[in-house]
């Protein structure tokens, strides 16, 4: 999010004059600005910032949610997490989602974007619309519908595979523990590919056309043009698109809860479902334990994002030096 540079017209006047009285005067002068910010600040504090702070406290409690408050147990929730195979199973499944589904989505979308960016291709708009259609649909409903579409006894996918002779026996895409996570990844890629496609198309449009013309005058064919013009210019976009896609890959709760409920035998249980199960779907809710799991995972994501920022910064610096 690159806004923030280029300070806007300063209604508060010159700022560098630090006396408390001066600050108070400037704040009073721009009081309307703060009034305008109030709704966002209240909503954001209540539903984003406070929950993060509260999670830290909850994660140190043994709390079932029925009592008004829990018992302080220090870091016991975290040490229990460390040795809970179900938590690591969920962590691993989320990780699988990240390392499998994200590159698949980013890569496939890039190939499609390059193909759809070709002005000689007919019906580009129709195709783009078709690929984008699943994006707007409700994840929870798609999850339910896909249960039926992939059903081994009457679902159209199995019917098609059996009718065409590709298969002799129906495949239980979602009911077989070894297959369910891959099926879920495939459905997730199917559902969200259109967004990544739009990202890539926007990125491709930033490349000036004359660069291709210059390259083709220099004798570069299509493959060379892609290799030496398109790819280098897309690298900065690759990083931001991968980050955006990875953030989305950590929010698969609605699709997976309705598709498999985390089953069979926890084979598709991702972190969100683990947290949900501990906090809301258990006979005795464990809010503290669930908070610890959520917080630990959130910290991992923030770390990942920070890492990507560092990489981006490094790249930009190197590009600056090369110039």
């Amino acid at each position: 999010m690159a806004m923030g540079q280029g300070a806007a017209p300063a209604s508060a006047g010159a700022r560098k004059d630090g006396s408390a009285e001066e600050i108070a005067r400037q704040v009073w002068q721009s009081r309307w600005l703060y009034v305008f910010l109030l709704p966002t600040v209240i909503l954001y504090s209540a539903y984003t910032i406070w929950p993060i702070v509260a999670s830290i406290r909850y994660s140190l409690l043994d709390w079932n949610g029925f009592d008004s408050d829990g018992v302080f147990i220090g870091l016991a929730n975290y040490s229990e997490l460390a040795s809970d195979p179900q938590f690591w199973n969920a962590f691993g499944n989320t990780l699988m989602f990240l390392v499998l589904a994200v590159p698949l989505r980013v890569g496939l979308a890039l190939v499609l974007a390059v193909a759809l960016n070709d002005p000689r291709l007919p019906f580009v708009r129709v195709m783009r619309t078709a690929l984008f259609l699943p994006v707007v649909t409700t994840g929870a409903i798609v999850g339910v519908v896909m249960r039926f579409v992939l059903d081994p006894t009457g679902g159209p996918i199995n019917v098609a595979l059996l009718d065409s002779g590709l298969l002799e026996r129906p495949v239980n895409f979602l009911g077989q523990a070894s297959l369910a996570l891959y099926s879920a990844v495939a459905i997730w890629v199917w559902k969200w590919l259109g967004v990544t496609l739009i990202y890539w198309l926007a990125a491709l449009q930033t490349i000036p056309k004359d660069l291709y013309e210059a390259a083709s005058i220099d004798g570069a064919g299509h493959v060379e043009q892609f290799r030496y013009v398109t790819v280098p210019l897309l690298v900065p976009f690759l990083i931001i698109i991968t980050l955006l896609t990875a953030v989305e890959a950590t929010n698969v709760f609605d699709l997976l809860l309705t598709l498999t409920g985390g089953g069979p035998f926890y084979a598709t249980e991702v972190i969100d479902i683990f947290v949900y199960r501990q906090a809301f779907a258990a006979n005795i809710p464990r809010l503290g334990y669930a908070s610890a799991a959520a917080l630990f995972f959130g910290a991992c994501i923030v770390l990942l994002a920070a890492l990507q920022m560092a990489v981006r910064w490094q790249l930009r610096r190197r590009a600056g030096e090369a110039r």
Binding site: L37, I49, P51, T250, V302
Partner: peptide
Amino acid sequence: IIGILGATFVIPAGMTIIPIVDL
């Protein structure tokens, strides 16, 4: 404010649900 908006962008939705229900 801009810093907080940017920093909380990556927080997974599942992470904040318990305090939100409580609130």
